[in-house]
Design a protein around this nucleic acid. Structure first.
Lengths: 114, 114
DNA sequence: TGTATATTCAACTGACAGGTTGATTAACCC
DNA sequence: GGGTTAATCAACCTGTCAGTTGAATATACA
């Protein structure tokens, strides 16, 4: 029943260790040992986290000699951003149509909304 | 071990039933039975899903006679949108250097540690 | 008062997630 | 080949999750 790829991405992002790994990978590719170093858990545990991230499409692993280089793939994050954006009007005043309308009437020269 | 509220929000969003409930609530408040109707699972199961969403801050439940009215609270979604936006430059071509600079300034208060 | 409806609580089950330790595979370097 | 390093595989433990059924609570209504 759970074939929606969004499931896997949200689930992957629900773990703080995995989010920290992504933050690290945003600064550049790294090997498994490099990624595991900051954490108080075993390398095997980190390897499992990487498998989860890979299954979610958030990282790509390539073999380089005896190392396995991991790099971030931002595509699923874009999907998530689009999903959340469905709800933007609920919290963002600029997407409130009445608000936008009133702003348009009173301060048109300031209006920037898309 | 983990008190980061982002954990609970991502975990709540990882379930397709809960995302469907949020989609329904985006169109207006509803009771538990109304929310449960479209799903092939028991009302009790839906009630549990609502508890998860409430713990994540995504919904608010108020008592009205024998009903419990649920409405969406978009605040955590805004938090998620901001979190994902940290990575926008990685997929968005139109990301300019000023944007990068401003985002880099504000991203440090988000979690980095296990 | 008694009954029907809305919702939650409680106990149970099967599956999965995150961690461990120990063994295994793969590539490098003498 | 033998030894070292990088990473995964395998088996196991424990806790949590999503679902069930059955009982309890709370409110409305006749």
């Amino acid at each position: 029943m759970t074939a929606d790829p969004v499931d896997a991405v949200f689930a992957a992002l629900a773990d703080p260790t995995r989010r920290a790994i992504l933050a690290r990978l945003a600064t550049g590719a790294a090997t498994v040992n490099e990624l595991a170093a900051p954490f108080p858990i075993s390398v095997q545990a980190v390897s499992k986290h990487l498998a989860v991230l890979e299954r979610a499409g958030l990282i790509v692993r390539t073999r380089e000699a005896q190392w396995r280089r991991c790099r971030l793939d931002p595509a699923p994050l874009r999907t998530i951003a689009e999903w959340v954006d469905q709800y933007r009007r609920l919290w963002d005043d600029r997407y409130d149509t009445l608000d936008t309308y009133l702003r348009d009437l009173t301060e048109t020269h300031h209006d920037q909304t898309p």
